[in-house]
């Protein structure tokens, strides 16, 4: 009954604070929406200058729809156009060999020019080179957004629960309510469980709204079961909650709580798979498995992109539970500072 009272109080506090609610639900929705448009925006179509090319070549290029073409008679015109950045590259004949000059300052346009030219020169003429391409997971319609989406979903749950739980426990300490709670027969474990259940319920609601929006409105790739996404989020929230409460003991005010963000939260993003984990130098790669977000991201990507079930995520869930248990234990030890029994 005491745990229930704590749970109700925590939920009341969260829902009473309209601005925080807006932050917790609309901030992730806003960020995901922006990312959706940034990553899924139409592909960049480069403009390429063609300097005095044989008719066969320029005709075949002009038929390509992935870019725009500008014909020049002289090299000089093309050079001045590329300097003014009206074209991204120009193609000319160096003897019998076609040569390409790129503007070069923007990797995106570089890549767009290269892939356009590769396609134009290779594909239609050489029918023999054509092959069937199958995807084990995902598919050719899988976009960058679909890959980073699940990781971000996990990140939002982790980040917001960490911050809100940390700050509310910090306030509990600084306003003296923690002392008052400890002057009652309430057990320390009851305090921790009250927090876990209160924030657990809230996280289910938060994840439900954000995930439903991402999947059904933004069309994020979703292969697996929705319920698994909620379960993974719940365990992520549990870890974030217990870590947030633990670290709040080492902060004297809200600002000091914020100072944990660049130290505890941001590094986790780098090891969560948002950037290719293989690219991390070997001497740093041991950090990833020590960060909870690593397991959240792996589980969410498995379910949402690869469509796997319980079997593949159970290990991640267990590891997240392990983190939580460790943090709960440390929390109870830290609470001993406030009351010995």
């Amino acid at each position: 009954m005491r745990i229930k009272a704590l749970t109700i109080r925590i939920l009341r506090q969260i829902f009473r604070d309209k601005r925080t609610i807006a932050l917790l639900i609309f901030a992730p929705i806003l960020v995901l929406t922006l990312l959706h448009f940034v990553f899924n925006g139409s592909n960049y179509e480069p403009t390429i200058g063609l300097v005095d090319l044989p008719e066969a070549v320029s005709n075949s290029l002009n038929s390509s729809e992935a870019g725009h073409f500008q014909n020049y008679d002289h090299m000089k015109e093309a050079k001045s156009a590329i300097e003014q950045r009206t074209i991204d590259a120009y193609l000319y004949m160096d003897g019998s060999q076609p040569s390409l000059v790129l503007e070069g300052s923007d990797p995106t346009s570089n890549r767009a020019v290269m892939s356009l030219l590769q396609n134009a020169f290779n594909s239609p003429d050489k029918k023999s080179a054509k092959m069937d391409i199958d995807f084990l997971h995902g598919g050719s319609e899988l976009e960058q957004f679909d890959y980073i989406g699940p990781i971000l979903l996990g990140f939002f749950v982790f980040f917001f629960v960490f911050l809100i739980a940390g700050v509310s426990f910090l306030r509990e300490r600084t306003t003296g309510t923690l002392e008052r709670l400890l002057s009652t027969p309430l057990k320390k474990s009851e305090i921790v469980f009250g927090y876990v259940i209160g924030f657990g319920i809230f996280t289910i609601l938060q994840t439900f709204l954000i995930a439903a929006y991402a999947i059904y409105v933004l069309g994020m790739y979703m292969e697996g079961a929705f319920s698994l996404v909620i379960i993974i989020s719940l365990f992520t929230a549990l870890t974030a909650l217990t870590l947030g409460i633990l670290l709040s003991s080492f902060a004297n005010n809200e600002l000091q709580m914020m100072q944990f963000i660049p130290i505890i939260i941001v590094p986790q993003i780098f090891f969560s798979g948002l950037f290719n984990l293989e690219a991390i130098p070997e001497w740093l790669s041991w950090i990833g498995p020590l960060t909870p977000l690593y397991y959240t991201a792996d589980a969410l990507t498995s379910v949402m992109v690869r469509g796997t079930g319980w079997g593949t995520i159970i290990e991640n869930i267990l590891l997240l539970t392990g983190f939580s248990l460790l943090f709960i234990l440390l929390n109870i030890l830290v609470l001993k500072k406030h009351r010995k029994i």
Binding site: K4, A5, R9, R16, D17, T175, G176, R180, S183
Partner: peptide, 29 residues
């Protein structure tokens, strides 16, 4: 501790809640 009522130097109240909600919470505790 069940038989003791304690009031510390700080008011130890939840500002986001009403007076009654504060009382209900501690009564349940």
């Amino acid at each position: 501790m069940k038989r003791i009522g304690y009031m510390g130097q700080s008011d130890a109240l939840y500002g986001e809640l009403s007076a009654k909600e504060n009382l209900e919470f501690f009564a349940a505790i």
